[in-house]
Design a protein around this nucleic acid. Structure first.
Lengths: 101, 101
DNA sequence: ACCTGGTATCATGATGTCGTTATGCAATTG
DNA sequence: CAATTGCATAACGACATCATGATACCAGGT
């Protein structure tokens, strides 16, 4: 339960999701992620480190660059499922609200 | 992305997961959740409130009791999928570690 | 050996979250 | 109506997290 909560926490931060989203199409180096997300370099580095420690992402130094890529693309399914559930939930909430008027 | 992160955050807390787990088998009132989780009453109330606001759980007052239940059991699938991914990730990490020795 | 571009880390301040204790309040019971 | 039970909320302290700016690090290239 501990560990699972920690895992969910990885995805509980908008900028981390943005970084992850940037990595949807494959391997990118840090600067590329910075460009695609518009976040500061320090921030991207930090989030990438966290994602690496969590095992969500893999680090691959190549010359003077460092490439990162998602280690298991199933994370994107997890994210999609959460999105779907979130939408369903919102719909349900609106329905309940409407029914109470 | 904002909203999705917030949603993940709901599941990023061990005690909240414990409360949710207590609700696996159906509707429970606050005291019952307190008993099953061993958490303080105030804490359970707070987490249940959060879960309600997030739409994950529904509140149903009944006489002097207040029952809560999961609004969409699909959350449990989300949780299971995260557990599965987490395990796969850990395996992968161990393999990588072993390979580097 | 020195730059330079790319990446990591540190220190800090601001903000958020968690859990506790104590209290409030509503419904039920006596 | 008084007492009790069940739940919610407030105030507080401890701690975690996030973003930033500054700086360190490191590999190539000159």
């Amino acid at each position: 339960m501990e560990a699972l909560a920690e895992y969910f926490k990885v995805f509980s931060e908008p900028n981390r999701l943005a970084v992850l989203d940037a990595l949807r199409e494959g391997s990118l180096n840090v600067t590329a992620v910075v460009e695609r997300t518009g976040l500061s370099q320090a921030l991207v580095s930090k989030h990438l480190k966290l994602l690496t420690i969590a095992g969500v992402v893999q680090r691959r130094p190549e010359g003077s660059l460092v490439f990162y890529e998602v280690s298991d693309r199933a994370v994107f399914r997890l994210i999609s499922q959460a999105e779907k559930l979130l939408l369903a939930t919102r719909r349900q909430q609106l329905d309940a609200l409407a029914a109470s008027l």
